[in-house]
């Protein structure tokens, strides 16, 4: 489903100095798989997620991103979204004055339009969203507030999951959707993901905590350090990291 080949990326900082962030990422995600990416702060996890979703501003000096056998390098973010790529943001963005439900409806219909489907009418949409919002345990009043405005940290994350449930992506990237969640919310998020899990839908789960992976059991766990994936393993790798931290891996890298 998704292949990332030798991806190198850098960014221009305020002083116009080029800063290398990703140094040769390789990833291969098959349909139905759940991949977890862990790694220390600043290692480039969110950068990778942003680049996959098509955020501009990065210098991609080398590498390829193939989604469904298609190089998506030149596609705009909304075109990638139309292909079924979804990113749950580490820091969901507030859009003052824009009604949350209106936003979701516009997003869903824009995706449907790009996919050549007809738009959902108001009634069908309402029925759909009223069902989905229950799954993330948010009150319906959140539909009538402005997108993420004044939402608590946890509420924003639930709202991201709500959007994911509504848009039914083929590849969902969850960037620390578990950070800042209480225990109940963590289960809610996990339930949301698990309800979508299917043989032709894949997930990339970026997290710092092995706890989420108790609920969403990954097929593969990657460790990213300084812009490189330095170790890949099964779900037990997460447990090992929880126990030992990243130090031992970084030493291994230095040695090799």
């Amino acid at each position: 489903m998704l292949q990332i080949k030798n991806l190198h990326a850098s960014i221009q900082d305020e002083k116009q100095k080029s800063k290398v962030i990703l140094r040769g990422i390789n990833l291969n995600i098959k349909p139905g798989e759940v991949h977890a990416i862990m790694g220390p702060n600043g290692s480039g996890k969110s950068t990778l997620a942003n680049i996959l979703a098509g955020r501009a501003g990065y210098d991609i000096s080398q590498g390829e991103i193939i989604f469904d056998e298609k190089n998506i390098f030149t596609l705009a973010p909304e075109e990638r979204a139309a292909l079924g790529l979804f990113l749950a943001f580490q820091y969901p963005v507030e859009i003052p004055g824009v009604n949350n439900m209106y936003f979701l409806k516009a997003a869903l219909n824009s995706l449907r339009k790009q996919r050549g489907l007809n738009e959902l009418d108001a009634m069908d949409f309402l029925t759909l969203i009223k069902n989905k919002i229950k799954e993330v345990c948010l009150n319906e009043s959140f539909l009538h507030r402005a997108v993420n405005e004044g939402f608590s940290g946890g509420e924003k994350k639930r709202n991201e999951v709500l959007q994911m449930l509504m848009l039914e992506p083929r590849l969902a990237i969850l960037d620390e959707t578990d950070s800042g969640l209480d225990i109940d919310a963590l289960q809610t998020v996990a339930k949301g993901v698990n309800s979508l899990r299917s043989e032709n839908r894949s997930f990339i789960i970026v997290t710092h905590y092995q706890r989420l992976l108790d609920y969403i059991v990954p097929d593969v766990v990657h460790v990213m350090v300084k812009g490189k994936i330095i170790k890949t393993g099964g779900k037990e790798l997460a447990l090992e990291l929880e126990a030992k931290g990243y130090g031992w891996l970084e030493e291994q890298v230095v040695v090799s």
Binding site: N50, A53, G54, R55, A56, G57, A76, P77, E78, R80, A81, A82, F86, L87, F89, P92, V93, E94, I95, P96, G97, V98, F103, L104, A106, A107, L108, S110, L111, Q114, A146, Q163, L167
Partner: peptide, 27 residues
Amino acid sequence: EDQLFYCQQRGLTLENAVSMIVNGFCK
């Protein structure tokens, strides 16, 4: 830029994203 990217990631075209954000601003 993050508002625009957020909207586009959800499937809105750049133009629609701009007008949505501006409309919100004027609400």
